[in-house]
């Protein structure tokens, strides 16, 4: 499947990318993403998964290397333009009291609205239909700060779908959810990549889910960065290099560490 995709299909390319603000925390990342792919980023705590996502979405700067979205570097995009291609869902968005679910999702129309942020009819309909898509029909007037973690995560996903970017970056979308919500959200993400033609890149600690559902995995290992399909990475033993502690070995049958 990979073979008959041309270079033009690569909507995101990372070239010898380093991460960090004052000092380099991770270096030499080479990876790419195609359209409608679901990619998981795995790695130890503090290795730089969030930094990578924030660098791609233009929130953080990076010391060296290149991040190309649709063949042009992210730092060359004017502020609002990058947001049309890349949206970001933080791991835990701060919640604003009294902000209705509708208004929360509507903020993502930032780049399409006038100076006052007035919604057009088309955006209005898009927000309503997107809320239905993520399973929050009838939640429009609910106070977003009173939602459960699972519902709030759905609203955040709706927000980034309404932003209408081709790439959606999510920082640990399932970290604070129970098992049922975790499965629902992951399935929802999988559907979105297929049906809405989006590329979703998310960080996670749930390796089992990542191996089962994702087209590709980016492993931010202790000794180096690996990119590949789940099977390919298992073959190459990439997961054995994930942690500094070499006594943790990846079991190829159980899909987990022992």
């Amino acid at each position: 499947m990979e073979s008959y995709k041309t270079i033009e299909d690569r909507i995101l390319v990372l070239e010898s990318l380093s991460l960090g603000y004052d000092k380099v925390i991770y270096s030499n990342i080479n990876a790419h993403a195609n359209s409608s792919e679901m990619i998981a980023i795995v790695g130890a705590n503090g290795i730089g998964k969030s930094s990578l996502l924030k660098s791609i979405s233009g929130i953080n700067t990076y010391p060296s290397g290149k991040i190309k979205v649709l063949n042009s570097c992210v730092e060359n995009y004017p502020a609002g333009r990058l947001a049309q291609q890349v949206s970001f869902v933080p791991s835990q968005s701060p919640r604003a009291k009294n902000l209705s679910v509708f208004d929360m999702v509507a903020t993502s129309c930032y780049n399409r609205t006038n100076w006052l942020g007035t919604l057009r009819k088309r955006d209005w309909e898009l927000i309503t239909s997107t809320l239905a898509l993520v399973g929050l029909e009838g939640f429009e007037n609910r106070d977003s700060s009173g939602l459960s973690d699972g519902e709030f995560q759905r609203a955040a996903i709706a927000r980034s779908l309404v932003q209408n970017s081709r790439i959606i970056l999510m920082d640990e979308p399932t970290a604070f959810l129970d098992i049922a919500n975790r499965i629902h959200i992951t399935k929802l993400l999988k559907n979105i990549t297929r049906e809405e033609n989006k590329t979703i890149i998310f960080s996670t600690h749930d390796l089992l889910q990542a191996l089962k559902l994702c087209d590709k995995i980016w492993v931010m290992g202790h000794s180096g960065f690996y990119e590949g399909t789940p099977n390919d990475l298992i073959e190459r033993g990439a997961f054995d290099m994930m942690f500094k502690d070499s006594s943790l070995k990846f079991d190829r049958e159980l899909f987990t560490f022992i």
């Binding site: 502020a79 947001a83 890349v86 970001f88 933080p90 968005s93 919640r95 100076w115």
Partner: peptide, 24 residues
């Protein structure tokens, strides 16, 4: 202040989200 309304609404959900939306 009126001109800041849209940015303030984006800032309600945190600075990194606002920044990812393209708020300068």
């Amino acid at each position: 202040s009126l001109y800041s309304i849209k940015d303030l609404n984006a800032l309600l959900m945190g600075e990194s989200y606002a920044k990812s939306l393209g708020v300068n």
